[in-house]
Amino acid sequence: MEILQIVAIGIIATLFAIILKQQKPELAIYISIAAGLFIFFLILGQLSGVIDILSKIVQKSQIDTIYLSTLLKIIGIAYITEFGANICRDAGEGAIASKIELGGKVIIMVMALPILAGLMEIILKIIS
């Protein structure tokens, strides 16, 4: 049962972070980073099975694999961006957090642009 582990780690890390926040807020941030990373690594094992099955389905249905890889990249960017932004916001730096989110949005847009261009091409082909 991974979920019990995740909840237990979250609660323990929160307790430590609260204890440290009164004395040393800069070390409390490290605890939240470590807890977040640990929970992510617990999730990662589960997620790899899902991604394997998804890529198998894509291969069977003969969809271009570039769509799946773009989608996965976008999910990864979204996760990393959210992680960084949340840590910055926890530390009280809302401005830096919004800049990280802006960067993530721009990079996701750049990644999604080829798909959009492909869609436009198909639409133009149908129209003509």
Binding site: Q23, K24, L27, A28, A34, A35, F38
Partner: peptide, 14 residues
């Protein structure tokens, strides 16, 4: 254990 390590270092330092 790394979470406990960080907490111990933090408490000792404070």
């Amino acid at each position: 254990n790394i979470i406990f390590k960080i907490a111990i270092v933090g408490i000792l330092i404070s």
